Simulated assay, not measured.
Amino acid sequence: MSSKQWLAVAAWVCVPLAASAQQQTQPNPLDANAPTAAVSYESAFKNFRASNDEGTTPDKLWRSANDEMGKIGGHAGHMKDAGSTPVAPANANTPAPQQGGAVDHSKHH
Score class of each variant (00 low, 15 high):
Ser2Ile: 02
Ser3Pro: 01
Lys4Ser: 12
Trp6Asn: 13
Leu7Ala: 15
Ala8Pro: 00
Val9Ile: 13
Val9Cys: 06
Val9Asp: 11
Val9Thr: 05
Val9Gly: 04
Ala10Asn: 01
Ala11Ile: 08
Ala11Gln: 02
Trp12Thr: 09
Val13Arg: 01
Val15Asp: 05
Pro16Lys: 02
Pro16Leu: 10
Leu17Arg: 00
Ala19Phe: 11
Ser20Met: 11
Gln22Gly: 07
Gln23Trp: 05
Gln23Lys: 04
Gln23Ile: 08
Thr25Gln: 05
Gln26His: 11
Gln26Arg: 04
Pro27His: 00
Pro27Gly: 04
Pro27Cys: 06
Asn28Ala: 05
Pro29Glu: 02
Pro29Trp: 00
Pro29Cys: 03
Pro29Phe: 00
Asp31Cys: 01
Ala32Pro: 02
Ala34Trp: 00
Pro35Leu: 04
Pro35Asp: 03
Thr36Phe: 05
Thr36Pro: 00
Thr36Cys: 12
Ala37Tyr: 05
Ser40Trp: 06
Ser40Gly: 09
Tyr41Phe: 11
Tyr41Asn: 09
Glu42Gly: 10
Ala44Asp: 15
Ala44Cys: 15
Ala44Pro: 15
Ala44Ser: 15
Phe45Trp: 11
Lys46Trp: 11
Asn52Val: 14
Asp53Ala: 10
Asp53Glu: 07
Glu54Asn: 06
Glu54Asp: 07
Gly55Ser: 14
Thr57Ala: 13
Pro58Val: 01
Asp59Val: 04
Asp59Ile: 03
Asp59Gln: 03
Lys60Gly: 12
Leu61Val: 14
Leu61His: 07
Trp62Tyr: 11
Arg63Asp: 15
Ala65Thr: 05
Asn66Tyr: 13
Asp67Trp: 10
Glu68Ala: 12
Met69Lys: 02
Met69Ile: 09
Gly70Pro: 05
Ile72Gly: 01
Ile72Leu: 04
Gly74Met: 05
Gly74Arg: 01
Gly77Leu: 02
His78Pro: 07
His78Met: 12
Asp81Val: 01
Ala82Trp: 10
Ala82Thr: 06
Thr85Lys: 04
Pro86Leu: 02
Val87Thr: 13
Ala88Asp: 12
Ala90Met: 09
Asn91Ala: 15
Ala92Trp: 10
Ala92Glu: 08
Ala92Asp: 09
Asn93Val: 09
Thr94Ala: 14
Thr94Val: 15
Pro95Gly: 02
Ala96Asp: 10
Pro97Cys: 10
Pro97Thr: 05
Pro97Tyr: 08
Gln98Ile: 08
Gln98Met: 06
Gln99Pro: 13
Gln99His: 09
Gln99Met: 08
Val103Gly: 06
Val103Gln: 11
Asp104Ile: 03
Asp104Val: 04
His105Trp: 07
Ser106Asp: 08
His109Pro: 14
